[in-house]
Design a protein around this nucleic acid. Structure first.
Length: 579
DNA sequence: ATTGAAATAT
DNA sequence: TATATTTCAA
């Protein structure tokens, strides 16, 4: 009942701790303070007695070690019981039964063994409670009130001061800076106040994310984050807790993706060797729970999620990454030096994995990006969609054409949406040849999957969402092309596409359905920092085979079968398809 | 002193 | 249940 009820916890009970071991004294003091007791310490039994005599009625309970150099602990116990009738708790390093018994017999109300647990200390108020209860009953014989009430009255009668002060749930933190005038009400008596719960608002989380990204995921620590966030009142523990949750979240995402990838691999390539994997897999990100609940049906704003490639399946031979830009070179990434990023520029600080060990932390950085999209509060939840529940089997490619997104739905834009309409730069015509040269494996794979689809990859938009982008920055884009052979080899018009041809890192290719591919071949890139790139879509190929016949087909690679069959747009276009 | 993990609490 | 806090051991 009330004894264990936290609401009955009496803050501010005055405890005298007696122990000749200064270390223990310190530990106990700290723990007791944490339990919101008022603590006085002393290292000698005789001194303790003296203090108690001098400050009669200034203590509610005594905790004393049994072994004291100057006086036998039991003697002290006896004297205290005799002179001031305070509840005394004995403690010792050993739990010898006879001693414990002796302690209890001599009037100890409890016997604690070192090391003393927080929980035990937290509960010692109950002894005061019991004692008081006893007194109250003796005096009034009144037991009609509920225990708690009696306790409160009784203990408060002990002393004028309220002993049950606790924090008002909401404003402990605010109080810090705003409550200057009547700050005495509950803080003057030094009673510890219960910590207010920190609510990780979107704003706060954004700060957190920014800090994490600035520090670098590999060396984040609660302390550093706390410092960077510079939020008054926020504690390291708060940050640590949040970081814990954050990491949990990221690993969950990663796991989901891996599972999905594995599943897709089994389904799509069971007949092929692993080397045929083009590691251009995509899938929708699972909804991060509440973030998107209620948004699944806000169709047009749905943004397909990034996929994390499975490193194990990754076959670097089949995908030719962009050349790794020299860090000291003139790559765009130099434009924003993560080192120089300050909190004043929340946007620029988002991707700064510069010093992240490339291969080890790839997953993390990828996940980071995921996180940025889905976890960051700045991203409208509606851009995410729920992973459809329907079967994940591959649909027949041709059969799927009918439900492929219409061109104008290629880049669904919501008002205030993170992604602005993407200017599309068409590549020079007649690149099929080059495409084949570039990506023979891809072609082969595509052919094997569906001959009709060969070379129908029309437009690949590179896009990488920026976690820190707020609505006002909705045009900010990260763009890059990767997973494809060197762009130059493709006869890609460098001049015309200069803005989008980022020699970048951590970029992703998004197909028309806004799928983002994160590629493992990007290893070596760290620190995405191309902001302000206005283009977010690049028409890489114009392999004209089937495009004419299938005008509605945009950016649906073989790998998108699953995806395209799962997009909301498709559901909209063909409502019955996934009913 | 810090940290991550686990136990707890709300 | 999810999320925040606290404890605890490394």
């Amino acid at each position: 009942m009330a004894l264990t009820d936290a609401t009955a916890f009496p803050y501010g009970l005055r405890v005298l701790v007696v122990d000749d071991d200064p270390t223990w004294l310190k530990i106990l003091e700290k723990m007791l303070r944490k339990c919101s007791y008022e603590v006085t310490t002393c290292g000698l039994a005789s001194v303790a007695l003296q203090i108690l005599r001098e400050r009669r009625n200034k203590f509610d309970i005594v905790i004393s070690d049994v072994n004291m150099p100057d006086m036998d602990g039991f003697k002290l116990l006896e004297l205290i019981g005799l002179e001031m009738d305070l509840p005394v708790i004995m403690m010792s390093i050993d739990g010898e039964t006879s001693r414990v018994m002796k302690g209890v017999q001599h009037g100890a109300c409890d016997y604690l063994l070192k090391p003393v647990r927080m929980k035990e200390l937290r509960n010692i108020w109950q002894h005061v409670y019991r004692k008081k209860m006893h007194e109250v009953k003796e005096i009034e014989g009144n037991d009609s009130c509920d225990d708690l009430q009696i306790f409160r009255n009784g203990v408060e009668g002990f002393d004028e001061r309220g002993l049950f002060m606790r924090a008002d749930s909401d404003t402990m933190r605010k109080r810090k800076d705003m409550d200057k005038d009547h700050a005495d009400q509950d803080s003057s008596d030094g009673a510890t106040v219960k910590k207010a719960r920190v609510v990780w608002s979107v704003d706060l989380h954004q700060k957190f994310v920014n800090a994490v990204n600035q520090i670098g995921f590999d060396k984040v620590g609660p302390k550093k984050i706390l410092d960077l966030m510079s939020v008054p009142g926020l504690t390291r523990e708060n940050v640590a807790s949040h970081l814990q949750k954050y990491r949990l979240y990221l690993s969950r995402l990663q796991k989901q993706n891996e599972e999905r990838i594995m599943g897709a691999a089994r389904q799509d390539f069971s007949h092929k060797g692993p080397s045929d994997n083009l590691n251009l897999r995509s899938s929708f990100e699972e909804q991060p729970g509440n973030l998107s609940n209620g948004f699944q049906h806000s169709s047009q704003k749905i943004q397909a999620q990034t996929n994390i490639p499975d490193p194990h399946l990754d076959d670097t031979k089949t995908s030719v990454p962009l050349k790794v830009p020299d860090k000291n070179g003139t790559s765009v990434s130099d434009a924003v030096d993560p080192q120089n990023i300050t909190s004043a520029s929340p946007l620029s600080g988002v991707f700064s994995f510069e010093r992240m060990p490339v291969n080890q932390d790839r997953k993390l950085s990828e996940t980071m990006i995921l996180e940025c999209q889905s976890w960051s509060g700045s991203v409208p939840p509606k851009q995410f969609m729920q992973y459809p529940k329907h079967n994940h089997e591959r649909c027949d490619l041709l059969g799927d054409y009918s439900c492929l997104p219409k061109p104008d739905l290629e880049h669904p834009i919501a008002p205030g949406h993170l992604y602005a309409p993407a200017p599309v730069i068409s590549m020079v015509e007649g690149d099929a040849r080059n495409f084949s040269d570039v990506k023979p494996d891809l072609i082969a794979c595509m052919k094997s999957l569906s001959p009709a689809l060969t070379c129908t990859v029309e437009s690949v938009s590179a896009q990488l969402s920026d976690s820190a982008v707020t609505s006002t920055n909705s045009d900010q884009k990260f763009s890059s092309v990767e997973g494809l052979s060197s762009i130059k080899d493709c006869d890609f018009d460098q001049e015309r596409n200069q803005a989008t041809l980022l020699t970048s890192e951590e970029a992703s290719i998004i197909c028309g359905t806004d799928l983002t591919w994160l590629h493992d071949d990007l290893s070596g890139y760290q620190g995405v920092s191309f902001s302000n790139i206005g283009l977010n879509s690049i028409d890489l190929f114009q392999c004209n085979d089937t495009m004419g016949a299938l005008p509605g087909l945009q950016n649906n690679w073989y790998d998108d079968i699953e995806l395209s069959s799962e997009t909301m747009e498709i559901q909209l276009l063909d409502g019955g398809l996934f009913a």
